[in-house]
Design a protein around this nucleic acid. Structure first.
Length: 182
DNA sequence: GAATAGATCCGC
DNA sequence: CGGATCTATTCA
């Protein structure tokens, strides 16, 4: 039984209450779970947490903007934004409505059913580009969408905890979680 | 308005 | 290490 399994049975969509938990708990619990988007399936292998206004690296640290407004939604929505003018980053919003927090999906492994065996998509911009995720998915409710959601696999992967990558502020926080063995 | 930094990736 | 190339913030 893993972190997701404590709240959801195997092979079922993760429910709202999973995403309403603390962001660090959700970030760790998403590891090993299955991301489903437009009939593509991939196992989540790397995540990072961005939590509230006290987190200087969080997009919402200085309040609500047009770009980050999805972060303020209730847990269980997608937050997708454009970075460096050419890559999209996928996040899943966590915690209660009005509290800006989310988990960045930094890496996934495609399942064999995709005909692309053993494809590792390591990097937040790479996985969205491959899966075809863009601004159109920003704000989608992944609890009710039939094309975009996360399922529990029942797998409890071993992972390590490290500082977040690619940021210049709040580098000391150990809010990156990576499945071992990749 | 201009300059610059940014949760990135790729090619040299 | 620099280029691609858009958004948001900071500065003049």
């Amino acid at each position: 039984m893993n972190a997701a399994g404590t709240i959801c049975k195997e092979n079922q969509r993760l429910p709202r209450e999973f995403f309403l938990q603390s962001t660090l708990h959700v970030a760790q619990g998403l590891l090993g779970q299955k991301l489903v988007f437009n009939n593509q399936q991939a196992i989540i292998t790397e995540t990072e947490a961005y939590i509230g206004r006290d987190d200087a690296a969080c997009h919402a640290a200085k309040g609500r903007t047009k770009r980050n407004q999805s972060m303020f939604k209730e847990g269980g929505h997608a937050y997708v934004y454009l970075i460096y003018g050419m890559y999209y980053c996928l996040n899943f919003v966590t915690e209660e409505e009005g509290f800006p927090a989310a988990v960045l999906i930094r890496g996934v492994e495609l399942l064999p059913e995709n005909k692309n065996h053993h494809v590792m998509l390591n990097g937040p911009g790479k996985l969205t580009r491959f899966l075809g995720i863009n601004k159109e998915q920003d704000g989608i409710d992944i609890i009710t969408s039939d094309r975009f959601f996360v399922s529990s696999t029942g797998v409890s992967p071993v992972y390590k905890t490290t500082p977040r990558i690619g940021i210049s502020k709040a580098k000391e926080l150990l809010w990156r979680f990576v499945v071992e063995g990749y």
